[in-house]
Simulated scan of single mutants.
Amino acid sequence: MSWLCGGLRWTAGRPALAWYGGGGRLEHVERVSELTYGNDVAFRVTGEDRLCVGVRRGGCPLRSVVPRRSSGGQCPECARLERSRSVAADTMADDPRPYAVYLAWFGSGMVKVGITADERGSARLLEQGAVAFTWLGRGPLMAARRTEELLRAALGVPDRIPYKEKRAVRSSLPGRAERAREIEELHRRAGALAGWPESLERAPFEAVDHAGVFGLEGLRPMTGVVTELAPEGTVVGRLLAAAGPDLHLGTADGAVVVLDTRLMSGWELAGVGPEGGAAAGVTVPVKSVERGVQGGLF
């Protein structure tokens, strides 16, 4: 039986793929398959088109077809509806839930500031692929947002880091102590700033490290990045690591290919049976990466 993929989910601190019922509908999650490092990821694209995943992954009433290279996986109308109730788009100023402010570390000199609903815990950090992070404080949404803006302006810390930059450094990270030192210094500098909202409760420094959760220790450098899925294409590889939406797969020919699972959402996929196995390899479009520089297609 074929299923529509919903992309990667971090469940109880572990990576898993979400699957929706087949037949071109995305009404509800039918199952979630947990991913295990050292095991194979193997699937074949059986659908002809990639369908919009809809709002809150609830399905698109128009069953719109979306571009294969879109990381959002939504048609323009569903994307507009999604952002109409989005914290990131500042359209939920009336949200009564408490929010947490954090510093997230992705590599040397790559630290961002962000906010997340306090009830979600560290889920947002796992989804972004943060190798290490620390909390800065908790409070009402607008207080958390003002704190985020304060740090961006005063410390020059961005609120976004492109995934291609995160991927490029995962196999050459400094040690755990150095990772912690960098965010500890920024936490100290942030705490010394004037202008923090009084309603935000500050949090002491405490480094949380995800390198083990992601499987990054001893990770080999990537040699290619999947750019899109395509009908009848296959992806078969040994799962080496998972960070954010990315799967690092070791292939039978010794390559390490990164698959952004956001490109999987909305596709109808089926497993690759024993008759296909490792020989099926990766037959979808891949952009080569040589010494950290992306080259042509192969």
Rank of each mutant, 00 (worst) to 15 (best):
E34P: 02
T261W: 14
R83A: 14
G175D: 15
D40K: 02
A93N: 05
A154E: 15
W3H: 02
V41M: 11
R167C: 07
K166V: 15
K112D: 08
L141H: 03
M1V: 14
G191I: 07
I161F: 09
S71I: 07
L219T: 07
A79W: 09
R291L: 08
C78N: 05
E201N: 01
D246L: 14
G72N: 09
V53A: 09
A88L: 13
S33M: 00
Y20C: 04
V131K: 08
L51Y: 14
V272W: 06
R167I: 13
A190T: 00
V208S: 14
V41D: 04
R44L: 03
G218F: 09
G13V: 07
E217S: 07
G175C: 12
S70T: 11
R25E: 12
V208E: 12
L193D: 04
S108G: 05
S86E: 10
V286F: 06
G273R: 08
L125S: 02
G139K: 06
L247M: 09
V111Y: 13
G129Y: 13
S33Q: 06
I115L: 15
A279T: 04
A207G: 13
R83G: 09
G137V: 11
R291K: 09
I183T: 12
A190M: 00
D90G: 07
A16N: 09
G114L: 07
A190I: 00
L219K: 09
P231G: 10
R220G: 04
F214K: 03
M222L: 15
G137Q: 12
G224W: 12
G191S: 15
P174I: 01
G276Q: 07
T134Y: 02
D209V: 14
W3T: 00
G296M: 05
G237R: 10
K287S: 10
D90K: 06
G273E: 08
R170W: 15
E27I: 00
L26Y: 10
G212N: 08
A252N: 03
V286R: 07
G139A: 04
S33I: 00
E165P: 00
H28Y: 03
Y20A: 08
S172N: 11
L17Q: 03
W19D: 06
P285V: 10
G195Y: 09
R14F: 00
P15T: 13
R50I: 01
Q74H: 07
T251L: 12
A117Y: 04
P162H: 11
G137T: 10
L136D: 11
G237E: 07
G212V: 08
G195K: 10
R9C: 04
R97Q: 09
L35Y: 01
A252L: 06
T11R: 15
C60S: 05
R57H: 06
A241V: 13
M264W: 12
R31N: 04
